[in-house]
Simulated assay, not measured.
Amino acid sequence: MPTSTASARYEGFGKEGKGSISTRSGALNDQPYGFGTRFEGIPGTNPEELIAAAHAACFTMATSFALARAGHGDGTLDTTCKVTLEQKDGGFAVTRSALSLTATIPGISEKDFAAIADEAKATCSVSKLLNCEVTLERTLKA
């Protein structure tokens, strides 16, 4: 299996420090992050946003493959993920990752859709990685 690589650099320390994040693929190239982007709404990214993006992408792909295995060949999956960061035990912790899936899948029952989405949540590698509550809200459109 492939190994994914990313790097982070931080110049200065604490609130005054400024960082950048890059990925080997180039999807992120010196993307700014720091205290301001994490806690004050300043443009840039933060670790929790990146975790949310990774979880949404992984879960959506896992759902897509589960649907294909069940014989479904067409449709659309839209997932939003909200990651909650809270102060805990003298530091910070990701305490929740909330997935919200809206799907349009011709010919699937609500029961089958729910079972496939629940299976995908349980088998998604990012869901397995996270040491927090992972919730799933499902909406099937006609």
Rank of each mutant, 00 (worst) to 15 (best):
P47F: 06
A70S: 12
G91V: 07
P32C: 06
T5M: 09
A70C: 13
S97F: 05
A68C: 13
H55M: 05
D74G: 08
C81I: 01
G91T: 08
G17L: 03
A142C: 00
P2M: 14
A53K: 09
F113V: 02
T60W: 02
T84S: 05
T63E: 08
D78P: 02
R96E: 05
H72P: 06
A8S: 07
A120I: 03
H55F: 06
E11A: 12
A68G: 15
V134E: 03
L28I: 05
D30C: 04
V134C: 03
P106F: 06
I116T: 01
E110G: 14
A103T: 05
L140R: 02
D89I: 09
P2V: 13
Q87D: 13
N29Q: 14
E119W: 10
G90M: 01
P2Q: 15
S109Q: 07
A52L: 02
A66L: 11
N131L: 12
C58A: 09
Q87G: 10
E49N: 07
S97I: 01
I21A: 07
L130Y: 04
A8P: 02
G26H: 01
T63L: 12
I42S: 14
Y33R: 11
L67H: 10
M1H: 11
G71P: 09
T123Y: 10
R38T: 04
L140G: 02
L28T: 01
L50S: 02
T102L: 03
I21E: 13
K82C: 04
T135G: 01
T80P: 02
L50P: 05
R69Y: 12
G90S: 08
E16T: 14
K82A: 03
A62P: 02
F65S: 15
A98Y: 02
A6D: 00
P47K: 03
R9Y: 05
V126G: 01
C132K: 06
A117F: 04
Y10D: 07
L50V: 07
G90C: 00
A53M: 11
A62F: 00
Q87Y: 10
T63I: 00
G12W: 05
G90I: 05
G14A: 10
K15I: 15
R69M: 15
A6F: 00
P32T: 03
E119P: 01
P106T: 00
H55E: 05
L140Y: 05
E48M: 02
S25C: 04
T3P: 01
S100K: 10
S127H: 01
N46Y: 10
E119R: 15
D112F: 12
K111N: 15
C58T: 06
P43V: 13
A98R: 06
E137V: 13
R38Q: 09
M1K: 10
S127W: 05
A52I: 04
G44R: 03
T63V: 12
A68I: 15
A66T: 08
H55A: 02
A117R: 11
D74Y: 12
P47G: 04
M1Y: 10
L130Q: 08
F92G: 11
F35R: 03
A142K: 12
G36M: 08
A6N: 01
A70E: 11
T95M: 07
G17C: 05
A68H: 14
Y33A: 15
K141C: 06
D89N: 13
G107A: 04
F65V: 14
V126M: 04
E11V: 14
A62S: 12
K15R: 14
I42C: 10
